[in-house]
């Protein structure tokens, strides 16, 4: 026993190194994983308050307040536009359409501001200043004033973390605005302004500067929100699909105001999906 102890003491440098390096690599590898990010949730409340404080200092005080009011108002307006309502022509024609629509809002928007974001890592995260208390839940979509941002992956009482489209695990279901062909956007981890669009078949007509919009097929984002612009494309001979380089509409480094999108029929969709998978 004493010998072991003496041995450890003599080589304390090596042992400290091995222990610390194992802990940190284990942390790094496990937190890389989408699911294990939840382990981070205990810090995100503390982080949240610190980042909120600093973003309050760095932002201009008056502008912050004005922005909040504006986004509050925008959210209210968005709740009233037709695309937020269940589109059911039959029902609408049967009765007074406007009354019906007000009774059946499908989407609800919660305004929030980004208090932390990173853009130059392979797995970037955003933290926003709305949480459980404000009705934010996991798996809700997050959109900005002009484009989409990501998906809520973790919620504390007052804050939530967002897995943005600039994350190696992010996949966005999109379509070409004009051609109505569906594809998937993946971020390749290089430049936070650019991404790769895949699975557009070669018979589709595309051109540089075409707009890519959300397909509406994913549960996270409403349809027809602009996502990016085609920058260049090549035909992938083997697969019969294009490989398209797009540029995001949003500069995610500068994103400050966002909306969390709540789909009121999410549970119904989820239960159907669940049944299919069973």
């Amino acid at each position: 026993m004493q010998n072991i102890f003496r041995f450890l003491l003599k080589h304390n440098f090596i042992f400290t190194f091995i222990i610390l390096q194992t802990i940190s690599i284990w942390l790094a590898v496990s937190s890389n994983d989408y699911q294990r990010f939840e382990a981070n949730s205990y810090v995100s409340a503390v982080e949240g308050s610190i980042y909120e404080m600093t973003s309050g200092i760095s932002g201009y005080f008056k502008l912050n307040k004005q922005n909040r009011e504006l986004s509050e108002e925008n959210a209210m307006l968005r709740n009233q536009i037709p695309t937020s309502y269940r589109d059911n022509e039959a029902e609408i024609s049967l009765s007074d359409s406007s009354a019906l629509r007000i009774n059946f809002p499908v989407l609800n928007f919660v305004p929030a501001s980004v208090i932390y974001n990173s853009v130059n890592q392979r797995n970037n995260y955003f933290i926003i200043n709305k949480g459980k208390i404000d009705g934010v839940k996991e798996n809700m979509g997050v959109i900005s004033l002009t484009s989409i941002v990501g998906v809520i992956i973790n919620v504390t009482d007052h804050y939530s973390s967002v897995l943005p489209v600039i994350h190696s695990k992010a996949k966005i279901s999109v379509k070409l605005q004009h051609a109505n062909e569906f594809g998937i956007i993946k971020w390749d981890g290089v430049n936070y302004r650019k991404a790769i669009l895949e699975e557009i078949p070669v018979h589709a007509q595309i051109a540089v500067n075409d707009t890519i919009v959300t397909s509406g097929r994913s549960e996270w984002y409403p349809a027809n929100i602009p996502v990016g612009i085609v920058k260049s494309f090549t035909i992938n001979e083997g697969s019969g699909f294009y490989t398209i380089e797009i540029e995001f509409i949003d500069d995610y480094y500068k994103t400050t105001l966002v909306y969390v999108v709540e789909n009121k029929y999410q549970q119904e969709i989820d239960s159907l999906m669940h049944n299919i998978h069973e």
Partner: peptide
């Protein structure tokens, strides 16, 4: 002390990690 140097390095890295959502990477 060399072991203390490593420990301080670990703590410093981990602190920065916690605030950068990159747990373990700076520490390592």
């Amino acid at each position: 002390k060399h072991w203390l140097l490593l420990v301080i390095g670990f703590v410093t890295g981990l602190t920065v990690d916690i605030f950068s959502c990159s747990l373990g990477i700076h520490a390592s």
